[in-house]
């Protein structure tokens, strides 16, 4: 009799532990998703890069202008940076449909980027390679139009 109780308790305990693990995995998974922040430090922390569409919102299927703001670690604007833009859709193994370029320096660490277009719905990435007096660094933005 006692052994049956112990057996039952063990089963209940095991089930509880399993439920706990499932819940933990589920909650963790739910909270993950891609980081959609449009302002972040570059990979090696040389700069903080902030991106925003000129019209305020990302629009699928339209050629848009964006503005990039670059500051150094100490918060000072980064001038005269050379910026290369690449990217694509990681889930579909293809690159950007257009070749966006920096088309002007607007002062105060602001750069104008032209030719950005997201043709499909889903997760896109923009990868910027930034070279300035401080050195070279990269940053990846996740964007869902």
């Amino acid at each position: 009799m006692a052994s049956l109780w112990r057996y039952l308790l063990a089963v209940i305990g095991l089930a509880a532990a399993l439920a706990g693990i499932v819940a933990a995995v589920y909650l963790h998974g739910a909270g993950q998703g891609p980081d959609l922040s449009l302002s972040k430090p570059t990979a090696n922390g040389l700069f903080v890069a902030s991106l925003r569409p000129q019209s305020g919102a990302v629009q699928q299927g339209l050629l848009q202008s964006w503005q990039l703001t670059l500051v150094a670690r100490d918060g000072t604007p980064v001038e005269n940076a050379a910026i290369d833009i690449a990217g694509g859709m990681p889930q579909h193994d293809h690159g950007l449909p257009t070749s966006p370029q920096v088309t002007g320096y607007l002062g105060q660490g602001h750069y104008r980027i032209d030719g950005v277009k997201f043709t499909m719905s889903g997760l896109w990435q923009l990868r910027l390679t930034i070279s300035a007096a401080q050195g070279s660094d990269t940053v990846v933005f996740n964007i869902v139009p």
């Binding site: 050629l63 690159g95 950007l96 257009t98 070749s99 032209d114």
Partner: peptide, 13 residues
């Protein structure tokens, strides 16, 4: 002329 200026000109895709 944005579409022409910024069209992709390279890539295996």
């Amino acid at each position: 002329c944005g579409e022409l200026k910024f069209m992709r000109r390279t890539g295996a895709e």
